[in-house]
Design a protein around this nucleic acid. Structure first.
Lengths: 184, 184
DNA sequence: CTGGTTATAGTATCTAGTACTAAAAAAAGG
DNA sequence: CCTTTTTTTAGTACTAGATACTATAACCAG
C-alpha cells in the first residue's frame, strides 16, 4: 500500500508548503518521518522549488504588493477626472475585499472607492471628509466591476458637496453624498 | 582622500540596498568597482545583513502583512463585544493610513474601523451595511489611537440601528449612524 | 620614509540545496 | 515463495552566497 502512502505524503507536503513555507528539506524530512532524499524526490515530482527560491519569490511578490498598497492614495482606478466638476473611477472586487462566507464585498471597500474619488475631483490642495451620507442599495460580489461617478453639486466657502453613484454592470449598487472640507 | 571615498562608497551602498535589495556581494562589487572583500567589510561596518537574510526578512514581513490583510475581516482590534448590544474597538493610525503630505488619516480608514465594529456587534450570521450617516469632526493624525464605541440603539425586523462614536486620546473625532441589514 | 588606514587576496567553513549513482527495502504480481 | 517493479534511503561531488579569519598590497599624510 506504499502507492497510497506516497500520495498522502505528497499531499501533506503540499499542505505544509502553504501553511509554513519556511521549512528546509531536513525539517520536512523529520516532520514526515522520511529521509531528505524522499522529500527531494517529492519536491521534484510536485514541482516545488527549493527553500531559497520559495523565499525569494515571496520577497519579490511582497515588494510589488507593498508598493501597490503604499501608492494607494487612491482606492480604485481614476478613469476620468474633470477637476472641480466630476470624475469616474473603476474598481474590481477582488478576493481580499469580500467576506469568505458570503463572497459579498465588505462595505468599507465600496465606501473607500467613492471617498477617494470624491477627494480626487476637488480642486484644492488638501481636503478631508467632513460628512457622508451613504446608502448601500444591493450587495456587491466578487469579480464585479464597480464604476463610481462623482459630481460636485455645490461649493460653499471651503465646503464641497459631492454626489457619488456607484454601479456594477447592470444597476446602481451604492450612492453617497459627501461634504468635503478643504483645509487652510 | 581615501577617507572620503570610503564614506561616499558606503553611502552609495546604503542607497543601493534601499532601491534594490536583491544584489549579491559580487554584483555590488562590480557596481561600485571594488572587490568583494571591500563590500563585505562595508556591510559589516554598516550592519547590513547578507542577501539571504535580507530576502528572508522581507518574506517574513510580507507574510505577516498579507496575513493581517487577509484576516482583515475586522479593521481595528476588537477590545470588547457584547453581542447584540455594544462593542469597543481600538485602532492605531499607522504610516500607511495617512496622506504623505499632511500626515492626516484618509477618511476611509476611520470609516472602516467603525463599519467593522458595527458589523461585529450584530448578533446575526451575515449582515451588510445598508445606510450610513457619517460626520468627521476633526482630522486624525499618524500615531493617534482611535477608540470606537458602538451601540445598538434599535432593532426593527432585520434592520439594526447602530451608533458608533470614535475618540482619540482627548476628544471625539468621528461619529456614525449605521443601519445594518441582516441577510436571509 | 615610516606608520596607519584602506583595499585586496586567499583559505577554510557553512547552509541548503542540485545532480547523480547505487543499494536496500517494500509491495505487487505471478 | 520468488521475482519484478516501485519506493525509499544512502552517499558523493558540486554549487551559490555567504562568514570568519589571516596576510599582504596600496596609498596617503605627517
Amino acid at each position: 500500500m506504499m502507492r497510497v502512502k506516497k500520495k498522502i505524503r505528497q499531499q501533506l507536503l503540499l499542505n505544509n508548503m502553504k501553511e509554513k513555507p519556511f521549512l528546509t528539506d531536513e525539517e520536512l524530512a523529520k516532520l514526515l518521518h522520511v529521509s531528505i532524499q524522499t522529500i527531494r524526490l517529492d519536491r521534484l515530482e510536485l514541482g516545488i522549488p527549493e527553500l531559497r527560491e520559495r523565499i525569494k519569490k515571496m520577497a519579490e511578490n511582497a515588494q510589488t504588493k507593498v508598493k501597490s498598497i503604499a501608492s494607494g492614495d487612491v482606492v480604485g482606478e481614476l478613469i476620468d477626472v474633470e477637476l472641480g466638476k466630476s470624475g469616474i473611477s473603476l474598481m474590481k472586487i477582488t478576493e481580499e475585499m469580500v467576506f469568505e462566507k458570503t463572497q459579498v464585498a465588505r462595505g468599507h471597500h465600496v465606501f473607500s472607492q467613492a471617498n477617494s474619488l470624491a477627494l480626487a475631483v476637488i480642486d484644492a490642495p488638501t481636503a478631508v471628509t467632513g460628512v457622508a451620507n451613504i446608502k448601500y442599495k444591493i450587495p456587491v460580489h466578487i469579480g464585479e466591476k464597480l464604476v463610481a461617478k462623482a459630481e460636485i453639486v455645490k461649493i460653499r466657502g471651503n465646503k464641497y458637496f459631492i454626489w457619488v453613484k456607484t454601479r456594477n454592470e447592470t444597476q446602481e449598487v451604492f450612492r453617497a453624498k459627501f461634504i468635503m472640507v478643504s483645509l487652510e
